[in-house]
Design a protein around this nucleic acid. Structure first.
Length: 885
RNA sequence: GGGCGGUUAGCUCAGCUGGUAGAGCGCUGCCCUUACAAGGCAGAUGCCACAAGUUCAAGUCUUGUACCGCCCA
């Protein structure tokens, strides 16, 4: 007996060992010149500031599962790891750090500050990488990338310059979203909206040279100083007579026109709108179409400008209070209502975002969107398909993408202005002289690019573009992009746009959008709510494989995952189960691998059955992988290992191990099934499977990560034998049920008499007598058409075969009567349903013939079982009455 | 306001192209059977949200209603 596996599975040691081996052996570093279809996934680059959270864990687990599976299937797999420099987020972190030294970034100056950020990155930027490794990710560490790497920066510049030359990047003064805390512009989708309680103020504006007035409703009275028009709906009869007249802005006494536009919602507020073109996106648009004056009254720090008259210098909050008080004092405040309205916040720091007019750089995504729209489903399949509409809707309503950020950490915009002649130079190389006037006084744009700009290039920049690398030729376009739906626009759509434009080809063939991980109550996990599940803690406590298995098992397409620690704990039991099944197998195999036998010609019914089931499992899993049904991959493995391999096969094979005739065959089947099961489960639970594998005789020291998916054995699919085995199982279960329901201890050996329905059954039962005796724990077993039940017997019927357990003396005879009644009740109910169907003329004539036949067979079997039970019950009742045995 | 998803066992969820309702956890009872008590065996629990329609047949398809959630405006 060899037992090289310790009694309990210790994840920590095992995981550390395999991580180190995979790293040292460069197991996951592919050679572009090697054969096999290319298969490539780029990691959604986590922020360098990030710590691994459960969302990453899900994402990385799913990707790793795919990579490992397709590696097994012989593809040339490349998974590129890397991190994102995360402009605003990282800058915030370092700013906070230096704040502890009493410094602001301005105190350090740009150069020194950026030095500090790089320093920070050297120190902490690897944290997330180590965490990725601790999840068992089979990434190629030799191809590690960072969005601010030299190579990637080169790609960024090239893209910027080319788009500029093509007129697809431009600079202009527009209204953008401004975070006064981060002191930068934000893209539209970097603004998070949430409903907040606010107020709706109703303010009267007097009409010039008239006694009339018009009442507007506003949620932001502090913008009143910036009003340059009043707008009403052209068909709103309440106001038509006022259109074209002039209104007076309260307090400031500025004269503004009253205009009409269909944009106005007549139902909202008073139906009259004040227009502040510099401080509202919609008003900006109105200002453009109606040629209004643009007055900026709030500055970049949220302070009222000189245009705000007496409010100049106030914070916008103070201004709101002051102006409301002033208007009220004048008697022009006609009401205040509570109102829930949507307020935009910075997605990084949650400060309320201010619409703000400034000079920014834009990518003309409006021009590029139509091609990206067409890519799905033509060139890319999007899963789950439900996201298709959302994707279209976004692209159809896209605005140009504001890509400049007024921060320091990131790719600095490669644009220079000549101080002498104002000429703008956009160039890949830093220019030294103005081509227009020859001046050397050139100033580079202070801004950096939106982090997502470099992310958009990720699928080809990581493969070496703009160089023509072997990797790029081999692996672009990548195979699949796996990510959360929350960055469909931030990232996925933009990668498609950039891939199409620069590579002439979409960046990936499939996009799989996975769910969000929520807490047990379905709430979003967040640090502030305190409901986060820390994947690293879960790995320490339950082992990485348990965490991975849980995430995979819950990853049903298109549905959020509600996760709780208990579920992970539950699946740890599964890891343990596998471990113990392997220990059992190893104990029984001995030192050397069993001699091979022809698996398509095994004799044992148990062996035929498990090989049959294994074959079906392989097919199911293969298909589930291809269709991204991760939950089915996990559940399929779970059910096979626990419900079939452990619960039945290991028990069925135990007697064979002591049986000269069967030992060779069964040892080989046992060994084979375990081995192939390990391969099948390896993508989901790499560590425990790898550890068991290297302990298998004949595979000592091997790395399961390099072992191929098992070959198919169609000849092992034997439906007839499977049905036979299932019949034997039903007989065993019937005996166990009788024992359990009559309170007979499972270990109490009983006599079993079997009256088979036909000669075939008789033969089958006799051939499997050993199995039945062991698993049903019998004292003796008798089979034959001549077998009859002693009157005092517990009984049951399985597929027409009478199962008889003679009862002796002290058992609960009334209990058996109740049991029989219950069982017969079930059968009667079932029969009634089937009979009703069969009595239905249109069912018989219209349903598919095989369905009708199946119902007929079922009815016949039910009737047969029922009548047999009836007879047995009759005898039993007589026994009860006569007191006979 | 527009879009999407959900409603199935006490809880969390599977149920593909319509054809006898499933799993895990929990619960009840009996068991330390030499891989595993992180275990074994057996058991109970479902008008599959509601209403109508299509069909021989609906958890599954269609429409509507209610409630919950998410995204966008």
């Amino acid at each position: 007996m060899s037992d090289t596996l310790p009694k309990g599975y210790e994840p920590a040691d095992v995981e550390a060992k395999w991580r180190e081996r995979w790293r040292n052996d460069k197991t996951f570093t592919p050679d572009p010149d090697k054969g096999g279809d290319p298969y490539c996934i780029v990691i959604p680059p986590p922020n360098v500031t990030g710590a691994l959270h459960i969302g990453h864990a899900l994402n990385l687990t799913l990707i790793d599962t795919l990579c490992r599976h397709y590696r097994q299937k012989g593809k040339n797999v490349l998974w590129i790891p890397g991190t994102d420099h995360a402009g605003i987020a990282t800058q915030n972190v370092v700013e906070k750090m230096i704040a502890r030294e009493g410094l602001r970034r301005q105190d350090l100056g740009r150069e020194k500050f950026i030095e500090r950020v790089w320093q920070w990155r050297e120190e902490y930027g690897n944290r997330i990488l180590n965490q990725i490794e601790s999840l068992g990710c089979s990434v190629d560490w030799t191809r590690l990338r960072f969005t601010l790497d030299e190579g990637l920066s080169k790609a960024v510049r090239k893209v910027f310059v080319q788009l500029y030359k093509e007129g697809l990047i431009y600079r202009g003064k527009y209204i953008i979203n401004w975070c006064s805390r981060c002191h930068t512009a934000l893209a539209d989708d970097e603004v998070e909206h949430s409903d907040e309680k606010g107020h709706l103020w109703k303010v009267r504006y007097h009409i010039k040279d008239s006694d009339e007035s018009i009442v507007i409703a506003t949620t932001r009275p502090e913008t009143i100083p910036g009003d340059t028009a009043i707008c009403v709906h052209p068909e709103d009869e309440r106001y038509t007579h006022l259109v074209g007249k002039t209104a007076i802005v309260p307090v400031l006494n500025r004269e503004v026109p009253i205009i009409a536009d269909k944009y106005v919602d007549r139902e909202f507020g008073t139906g009259a709108l004040k227009v502040t073109p510099c401080h509202d996106h919609n008003d900006w648009a109105l200002g453009k179409t109606h040629n209004l004056v643009f007055l900026q009254v709030i500055d970049e720090d949220g302070i009222m400008t000189s245009e705000a008259g007496k409010y100049a210098g106030m914070s916008k909050q103070d201004c709101r209070k002051a102006i409301v008080a002033d208007i009220e004092a004048m008697g022009d405040l006609l009401g205040v209502e509570d109102l829930n309205h949507s307020v935009g916040h910075c997605y990084r720091c949650h400060t309320v975002v201010e619409p703000h007019v400034s000079r920014q750089w834009f990518v003309a995504t409006t021009k590029m969107a139509p091609r990206a729209r067409q890519a799905i489903p033509a060139d890319i399949s999007l899963l789950p398909e439900t996201w298709l509409k959302t994707y279209y809707h976004w692209l159809d309503n896209i605005r140009d993408w504001c890509i400049s950020r007024q921060i320091w950490w990131g790719h600095r915009i490669p644009a220079w202005t000549c101080a002498a002649c104002d000429h703008v130079i956009v160039s890949e190389e830093d220019p030294t002289v103005c081509p227009e006037c020859g001046s050397h006084d050139l100033h580079q744009d202070e801004d950096v690019l939106d982090t997502w700009f470099s992310s958009a290039l990720w699928p080809f920049s990581t493969l070496g573009w703009p160089e023509k690398t072997a990797d790029l030729a081999r692996w672009y376009p990548t195979s699949v992009l796996v990510t959360g739906f929350d960055i469909l626009f931030f990232w996925v759509a933009r990668m498609i746009i950039m891939g199409q434009h620069f590579m002439g080809e979409v960046p990936f063939r499939t996009v799989y959008l996975h769910a969000l991980v929520r807490d047990a109550q379905g709430k979003k996990m967040s640090k502030s709510t305190g409901n986060v599940i820390d994947p690293l803690k879960m790995i320490t406590t339950y082992g990485c494989d348990a965490l991975r298995f849980t995430l995979t098992a819950f990853a049903a397409m298109g549905r959020d995952i509600k996760l709780s620690e208990e579920r992970i704990e539950g699946y740890r039991h599964f890891v343990n189960k596998l471990w113990n099944a392997a220990r059992f197998t190893l104990m029984n195999l001995g030192e050397t691998a069993p001699a091979p036998v022809d698996l398509t010609a095994v004799k044992g019914l148990n062996n035929r059955w498990i090989l049959h089931r294994l074959e079906l499992l392989k097919q199911d899993m293969d298909k589930a992988f291809d269709e991204y049904r991760f939950n089915d991959v996990a559940q399929g493995g779970y059910k096979f290992l626990w419900g079939e391999f452990c619960d039945w096969y290991l028990e069925l094979v135990k007697p064979d191990m002591a049986n000269e005739e069967m030992r060779a065959e069964s040892a080989c089947v046992l060994y084979t099934v375990l081995k192939e099961l390990l391969i099948l489960l390896h993508p989901v639970m790499p560590f425990v499977t790898a550890e068991i594998w290297q302990a298998l005789p004949g595979h000592e020291g091997e790395d399961l990560a390099t072992i191929a998916w098992p070959e198919e054995r169609p000849a092992c699919i034997r439906n007839d034998d499977a049905a036979r085995m299932e019949f034997i199982q039903s007989v065993i279960v019937a005996v166990r049920t009788i024992k359990a329901e009559l309170d007979i201890a499972p270990s109490h050996r009983v006599v079993l008499k079997l009256h088979p329905a036909d000669a075939g059954q008789e033969e089958l039962l006799l051939a499997n007598e050993g199995t039945i005796r062991t698993l049903a724990r019998l004292e003796s077993m008798e089979v034959g058409l001549g077998v009859h039940a002693p009157k005092a017997s517990a009984s049951s019927v399985v597929q027409g075969c009478e199962i008889i357990v003679p009862l002796k003396g002290n058992v609960d005879l009334q209990g058996e009567l109740a049991r029989l009644a219950k069982e017969m009740g079930k059968l009667t109910d079932a029969l009634a349903v089937v009979d009703k169907k069969l009595a239905n003329e249109s069912f018989v004539s219209r349903a598919k013939p095989e369905i009708v036949q199946r119902e007929r067979d079922r009815a016949a079997e039910l009737k047969d079982n029922l009548s047999k039970l009836e007879v047995l019950k009759q005898r039993f009742t007589e026994a009860l009455e006569s007191g006979e045995d």
